[in-house]
Nucleic acid binder design. Structure first.
Lengths: 228, 228
DNA sequence: GTCTATATAGAGATAGAC
DNA sequence: GTCTATCTCTATATAGAC
């Protein structure tokens, strides 16, 4: 902890050298991949020599470790806020979805690194917490979905596990194409996604009102033959 | 082309040594990542020494190149079949979605490699065709969605570009968790996904019949405030 | 088609001067 | 906090024997 005790937090202006270097590394890891980024790349981008990096960090691995720990702590604090709120089930689900897109905007590099590297990094003991966080996040989504079904806000014929995976994947994979300052705001993207997720892309004609959706519920696994 | 002219196609039984090695490499690239897989890893898995691999392939890069070219050719031939069919718009869209999940089942390694490595590989001239294929696939989905909206099968208030991205990402990202022989068949997964995509996860109550969806269409960007 | 042996380059990391 | 200099290991790839 070479950080001054009451020093500046995470603002870009008053960022410590360490935080500056971490930001540079994060962007490179996100863009080129962890393995494809050399310590020399990071040093070059920072305008120093590779050896100098080791004054600030133990290793390249330590850098990504610190990035992921900080990111996950922040993200799960936000999830906890949502879970602890008194909003109804549907609102909580919407807030969780919006949180993802906002996180992509504010912490895009970290999201990308986590999405792209978690599987390989996670094999090292040091990164065991990544798998743990994954379990936690599954619990968050599954409980939101379950609450939604029980309260009647969500359809009861959903396979919760599959639905969870679809939502989880979709809200995070947008990091591949979303660019802050680009043509869409994070709110617009979240709005459009929530519209699709909640109501679907088909016109109402395709889904006859209540009776049909109850018939659907009675044959949970084979209803998809509507495609033929 | 050291392949006998009229030789065996792609069946596992009559596979040439070359194809065998390519399969081994594909699985490793998919699991550990291209950069994290060494030629020694591949040789070890094949039970030979690393130098021997160079009797079959120029380089590690050539291996992934051949994998991607073959895969893309196969996939786009299937897209072409769908586009050329006389099915209605909704059926074509459903077929395209099902094709993705079936491809994940049959060519999971290639899908994973493409998903994980296209961005970095694509920066090399040699892999320029990956960007071209990406454009082609966008055209396929956008034309399916446009046709769907025009025919009245799909809602007219959709942002086609955003919808395309959501669908594209979701149908392919399932490669991260789908395991052939696991608890779900590819048909079940596709069914569930199509149900969500077409009709949404909310109960019908949340979406009043025709008038409401037309009101929605009149304010395309701000409807998402239903979350507050 | 595979092995032995090895060239060559690049990567992460360290020690001590400034 | 950065630089100079350098060690060590690992990776891709090659040449020629079997």
């Amino acid at each position: 902890m070479p950080e001054p005790a009451g020093g500046p937090a995470a603002s870009t202006a008053g960022a410590s050298r360490r935080e500056e270097l971490l930001r540079i590394a994060a962007d490179l890891f996100a863009t080129k991949g962890f393995r494809n980024t050399t310590v020399r790349d990071i040093a070059d981008a920072a305008g120093i020599l590779s050896g100098s990096l080791y004054h600030h960090f133990d290793s390249k691995e330590s850098m990504v470790d610190e990035l992921m720990r900080t990111f996950q702590a922040e993200l799960f604090a936000a999830y906890d806020d949502i879970l602890a709120s008194t909003d109804d089930a549907r609102s909580k689900l919407e807030r969780a979805v919006r949180l993802s897109f906002e996180t992509i905007e504010r912490r895009g590099a970290e999201v990308a690194i986590f999405q792209n590297e978690a599987a390989t990094l996670g094999q090292l003991e040091r990164f065991g917490y990544l798998a743990e966080r994954n379990r936690q996040s599954r619990d968050v989504w599954v409980s939101l979905l379950t609450e939604g079904v029980e309260s009647g806000a969500l359809r009861s014929d959903l396979d919760i596990t599959l639905t969870y995976r679809f939502i989880r994947d979709t809200v995070w994979v947008a990091v591949r194409w979303y660019r802050p300052g680009g043509p869409h705001t994070t709110t617009e993207v979240a709005d459009q996604y929530l519209t699709i997720l909640l109501d679907g892309i088909a016109t109402s004609g395709g889904r006859a009102a209540t009776s049909a959706s109850e018939e659907r519920a009675s044959r949970p696994s084979e209803q998809g033959d509507s495609s033929a």
